[in-house]
């Protein structure tokens, strides 16, 4: 069964109120999230390597009485859904997860160097991307978070559709940063954080940032000034990184949303890595394991304390 057939079946049977998926955007290579309500629309449902948007974010915006909804989910989307169910933001019984194998998401910005490129001029084959007939390795066009993805297929689903996509090399840009001397690392982060205009697009795109009032906009207590200076940006991004510890599902939605192209997911991926390494916890991988900050062990790391 293809994704379209699966979605149409659900809508025809009226077992769901809608199917949240992707349809083509108005610009080439862009897709947009869309809630399919009737079976005739399903022809427009697509799933391509340009469907990076984390749909879990959009479920939070549905009215509470919407009823059951089906959602197209890649590995990271399914992890986000699991976390949101754990945190009582979504009800599992109101979800029908249409799992899909992720082919790896292409950063459309990396296609900008080909002028006036049309969608019909790009094709995908086993691990390669064909641009105007010329093959290039797919891995160099992937988004940074996809390059180090460990769960491309969903962990939680009601039905799993499509075929498993070809593997691509695991590329860890965090390890490369860790290898730099600390002065170089700060130079890099200070430069990147200074560029931030604090539009909050990263927060708004994040499936885990659903607080009604964000610390960034709180006036009492006032944590940061609205002006985008390095030190305020520092508090915003590190504060968010701490809030995402043990919750970040490594989808890269923040980085995709950033209008300045700041590799901001690096911070959140680093936190996810720290939590995985030292507290043996992965967000969205298990429903039962307690979140890292609501539990402790007597033999937790202590060497960093004086």
């Amino acid at each position: 069964m293809t994704l379209r057939e699966g979605a149409r079946k659900l809508l025809e049977e009226k077992s769901v109120q809608g199917v949240l998926g992707y349809k083509r955007g108005s610009l080439p290579f862009r897709t947009r999230p869309y809630l399919f309500r009737n079976p005739q629309e399903v022809e427009e449902l697509v799933f391509t390597p340009f469907c990076g948007t984390n749909l879990a974010r959009y479920l939070l915006r549905l009215p509470g009485d919407f009823g059951k909804v089906a959602v197209v989910a890649k590995g990271c989307d399914s992890r986000a859904l699991t976390v949101l169910v754990r945190e009582h933001q979504l009800k599992r019984e109101n979800l029908y997860i249409l799992g899909v194998h992720c082919p790896g998401m292409v950063d459309w910005r990396k296609l900008a160097q080909w002028k006036d490129l049309k969608e019909s001029e790009v094709a995908f084959e086993e691990g390669t991307i064909l641009i105007r007939g010329v093959p290039h390795p797919l891995s160099s066009f992937l988004e940074a978070s996809c390059k180090r993805c460990r769960y491309r297929s969903p962990l939680e689903y009601d039905i799993l559709l499509g075929a498993e996509a070809s593997p691509f090399p695991f590329e860890d840009h965090l390890a490369a940063l860790w290898r730099l001397p600390k002065e170089k690392r700060w130079e890099f982060f200070a430069q990147e954080l200074s560029r931030c205009i604090r539009c909050y697009a990263c927060r708004n795109a994040c499936p885990m940032c659903y607080c009604k009032e964000c610390f960034a906009e709180s006036h009492k207590p006032l944590f940061i000034h609205p002006s985008p200076t390095l030190r305020d940006n520092f508090v915003f991004h590190l504060g968010r990184a701490m809030h995402l510890a043990g919750r970040c599902v490594e989808c890269g939605a923040c980085e995709r949303a950033c209008p300045l192209g700041i590799p901001i997911a690096t911070l959140f991926l680093a936190v996810a890595e720290i939590v995985r390494e030292h507290f043996a916890f992965e967000a969205g991988a298990s429903v039962e394991a307690p979140a890292p900050f609501v539990t402790y062990r007597e033999d937790d790391p202590n060497a960093f304390i004086l």
């Binding site: 940063l177 860790w178 600390k182 002065e183 170089k184 690392r185 700060w186 130079e187 890099f188 982060f189 590190l238 990184a241 701490m242 510890a245 911070l267 680093a270 936190v271 720290i274 939590v275 030292h278 507290f279 890292p292 900050f293 402790y296 062990r297 007597e298 937790d300 790391p301 202590n302 960093f304 304390i305 004086l306």
Partner: peptide, 30 residues
């Protein structure tokens, strides 16, 4: 158990600051 919970938070913050290259500015002690 307050300090056990604190230790987890501080450890993540400590490592994150280390990642940013700001090692040695934030200290914890018992």
């Amino acid at each position: 158990s307050g300090n056990y919970f604190a230790r987890r938070k501080f450890f993540v913050l400590y490592e994150l600051l280390r990642f940013l290259g700001l090692e040695g500015r934030v200290h914890f002690s018992w």
